[in-house]
Amino acid sequence: MAKKAVALLSGGLDSALACALTLRLGFDVVGVNLATGFCVGEGRCDTALALAQRLGIPLRLLDVGEEFLAVVRDPKFGYGSGMNPCLDCRILMVRTAGRVMEEEGADFVVTGEVLGQRPMSQHRRALDLVARESGVGDRLVRPLSGRLLPATSPEREGWVRREDWLDIQGRSRKRQLALARDWGLTEFVQPSGGCCLLLTRTYAVRLRDAFAVRGRDNLTREEFALLRFGRHFRVSPTVKVIVGRNERENAVLAGFAPGRWVLSFPRVPGPVALVEGEPTDAELGLAARLAARYSDARPDEPVAVRASRGDEVRDLSLVPLAADDPRIPLWKLGE
């Protein structure tokens, strides 16, 4: 009976190659794609599905968003350059794949990790730590760097020879891209190194601010999502203004209206803006003037702004803040 592997399939190049190599060695493979809610870019799930179809394997799509939020709030092994808990993230993903391995009656877990490719999570000690902390241990296989790493269960059991693995290491993707061409793999997200929101400066600054004001344990999944959209301004220690940048963001922000003040412009084209917190009358007026700065209103004349929250409506008339107001860059979070 053929041995079976569970392969983490993100839609990226390395995971695609690791999965393909495992298949070429004669193993049955079940793919697993995990959604954390923090991926940058469109179509990664679709790409993973296309890869699975190309490779002829089943793919399980799992949402680990709630578990991942717990990791983001309090990572055991800390953050990277942004708010990215890379080690804890890898541990969660491999642990989840390990659960699928048990459910599927599989024999080991495969990932596309490459020795030395990422500074926080793919050096030798980090790879060992992930194997240990995930509980998968020596049943965790990294086929792309297998010759450079200690023997794992499939090798010791005699299911593969050491030379069957590859010896890729470092940040270059030249060998991987060449292999993809040779093996006819085209359905993958191009390598970019920036597929996670938590690595981006803008999101990281906004998240640190939200943790400081709202508290790590109080931030909801909705609030994590809202940090993606619009321009964010911390106008006071307890009040934040979020201003849409285009029609799409205006529509998105409107969906986050419940429980927040919504600012709109009944007489001129303008953005949708949200006000978080419990603003004083003066702070609500300041928020409206800030939002008006991004409308089509004349900069030196009063403009009508409607502020609403639930059944409460206030119609304001005020002059937009000047575009060069020195407070604006001080308030702005992340950009």
Score class of each variant (00 low, 15 high):
6 V>R: 04
6 V>E: 11
10 S>F: 05
14 D>K: 08
23 L>Q: 14
26 G>Y: 05
29 V>F: 09
33 N>P: 08
34 L>A: 01
37 G>Y: 03
39 C>Q: 15
41 G>K: 01
43 G>R: 08
49 L>H: 14
52 A>L: 13
58 P>Q: 11
60 R>C: 08
61 L>C: 09
64 V>K: 04
64 V>T: 02
65 G>F: 11
66 E>N: 10
66 E>G: 13
77 F>H: 15
79 Y>P: 10
85 P>R: 05
86 C>I: 12
87 L>Q: 03
90 R>K: 15
92 L>Y: 07
94 V>P: 11
97 A>E: 10
100 V>M: 05
100 V>K: 03
103 E>V: 07
106 A>E: 06
116 G>V: 02
124 R>N: 06
126 A>R: 05
128 D>G: 03
128 D>E: 14
130 V>D: 04
131 A>C: 02
132 R>V: 08
132 R>G: 02
139 R>G: 00
141 V>G: 01
143 P>Q: 01
144 L>I: 06
149 L>W: 07
154 P>R: 03
155 E>F: 13
156 R>H: 02
163 E>R: 15
163 E>L: 09
163 E>K: 14
179 L>Y: 13
186 T>L: 06
195 C>T: 01
213 V>A: 12
216 R>V: 08
217 D>V: 06
229 F>S: 07
230 G>N: 11
230 G>K: 12
236 S>Y: 06
237 P>M: 07
238 T>V: 01
243 V>T: 11
246 N>Y: 02
251 A>H: 11
256 F>D: 06
258 P>T: 04
261 W>L: 12
268 V>W: 03
268 V>C: 02
270 G>S: 13
271 P>T: 03
271 P>H: 01
273 A>V: 09
275 V>F: 01
279 P>A: 04
282 A>V: 10
290 L>D: 09
291 A>V: 10
313 V>I: 15
317 S>F: 13
321 L>S: 02
331 W>H: 04
335 E>R: 15
